[in-house]
């Protein structure tokens, strides 16, 4: 390991810390849930409004101020296993169906 390596590591971690700090500072108290499919908004509503959004391959459930994906037709089921999200800036993604659930 050379000196430049340590600088590199320091820069990467500093950048990560700054980003994370920014999300924590400016991202509390989620308000709006947006569900996007192929980068087109298919549903937008308040986080405290309970709602089930059915998409072509996924089912998004908004309940008690938390959003989760209850159903997906893809193989990997990553979005279904994702913990429910409730904070601003948090996302659940489904790459196979190009679905994004965001809290803004």
């Amino acid at each position: 390991m050379k000196k430049a390596d340590f600088w590199l590591i320091a820069v990467v971690f500093a950048a990560a810390l700054v980003c994370w700090g920014a999300f924590v500072l400016f991202g509390t108290g989620g308000a709006t849930v947006t569900v996007k499919e192929k980068n087109e908004t298919v549903y937008q509503g308040a986080l405290h409004t309970d709602k089930t959004v059915t998409l072509s391959g996924n089912t998004v459930v908004i309940r008690d101020g938390k959003v989760s994906v209850s159903n997906a037709t893809c193989r990997n089921q990553l979005c279904v296993h994702h913990r429910p999200i409730a904070r601003k800036g948090e996302t659940i993604l489904c790459l196979p169906h190009q679905v994004a659930v965001l809290i803004e």
């Binding site: 999300f23 980068n39 996302t91």
Partner: peptide, 17 residues
């Protein structure tokens, strides 16, 4: 996918490192 993925930026920076 949309700007929402930027939420993963800090995690991805650290994990990549």
């Amino acid at each position: 996918i949309g700007r929402g993925v930027l939420y993963y930026l800090p995690v991805l920076l650290v994990c990549g490192g």
